[in-house]
């Protein structure tokens, strides 16, 4: 493989060079995803999910709606002020000041106050963080929002989206200047236990080998398969189970009328879930 393929993954280039690995010694398939790898000073690696133009456009639209509502509220207030003759001119000044603040301060103020989120970003589950994954600081938020005007050129974020398209972490110009990146917050939830459906019968339990050992990857993929089983048709589930079932049956001695059941029983016995139905 040639060097040109490696520009796709900056992190890997660093690792390869540090270890004096020659690229042509490696058979490597680059898998593209919307995640980025971060290495902490403690050499801990973690991935975060990047937010690109799709969710950010929706978040921006929500913020625009909120800003329109806020302008409407101030216009109503200014109309009331104009009833008082001495305050009629002040009302217009107030409105212009408010428009200026909304244009230049809305994003920064909310991102500072809500730790990297505006109401639109909150609704979309997005957050602005520093490029190294640490929480954003006040200057970062101010800088990235000051550049919004440039990103908006020549209209509707033409430059911003073009820069996002070019940058591997989908950052607009403001993000590059502020050293920030917009990420999706993982709204993680505790996954429920995997359903063994139908439960392991007494006869199946008797016919199973006393001990079944599954590797970590095997357990993980069978668990994922069982969790998503309901979204698959019966034919497709059996087709998928056929990829692992025969080899697993031969290795562990688990027998069943279908390959899908072989996976289920092997998983149930390996994790002790076969005794749950009692």
């Amino acid at each position: 493989m040639e060097w040109r393929s490696f520009h796709k993954n900056d992190e890997l280039i660093g690792c390869l060079r540090a270890q004096h690995v020659r690229p042509h010694h490696i058979v490597w398939v680059q898998h593209l995803d919307t995640t980025a790898l971060v290495e902490t000073p403690e050499r801990v690696h973690f991935r975060y999910r990047l937010a690109g133009p799709g969710p950010r456009a929706v978040a921006w639209f929500i913020d625009v709606v909120i800003r329109v509502v806020l302008v409407g509220v101030v216009i109503a207030f200014v109309s009331l002020l104009s009833i008082i003759p001495t305050l009629a001119g002040a009302g217009m000044g107030l409105l212009l000041l408010w428009l200026f603040f909304l244009d230049w301060g809305y994003g920064a103020a909310f991102e500072i106050g809500l730790q990297g989120r505006t109401p639109g970003k909150m609704a979309m589950g997005l957050r602005v963080v520093r490029a190294d994954g640490s929480p954003g600081r006040v200057p970062d938020f101010v800088l990235r929002n000051m550049m919004r005007g440039v990103d908006f050129l020549p209209g509707i974020f033409g430059i911003g989206v073009a820069v996002m398209w070019w940058d591997p972490r989908m950052r607009r110009l403001g993000d590059l200047v502020g050293g920030t990146v917009v990420v999706r917050e993982d709204r993680s939830q505790v996954l429920g236990t995997v359903a063994i459906d139908p439960p392991v019968s007494e006869e199946e339990r008797r016919n199973m080998p006393g001990r079944v050992v599954l590797g970590r990857d095997e357990t993980a993929i069978i668990e994922t398969f069982l969790r998503r089983r309901r979204r698959l048709s019966d034919e497709r589930a059996e087709e998928l189970a056929l990829l692992l079932g025969p080899a697993l049956s031969e290795r562990t001695g688990v027998q069943a009328p279908s390959w899908e059941r072989v996976l289920t029983l092997a998983y149930a016995r390996a994790t002790g879930r076969d005794r749950e139905a009692d």
């Binding site: 095997e218 979204r231 990829l243 692992l244």
Partner: peptide, 14 residues
Amino acid sequence: TEGWDLQVGLRAAG
């Protein structure tokens, strides 16, 4: 709907 990712994982495990 058709579990392409599962296909990759199960084949690799197989």
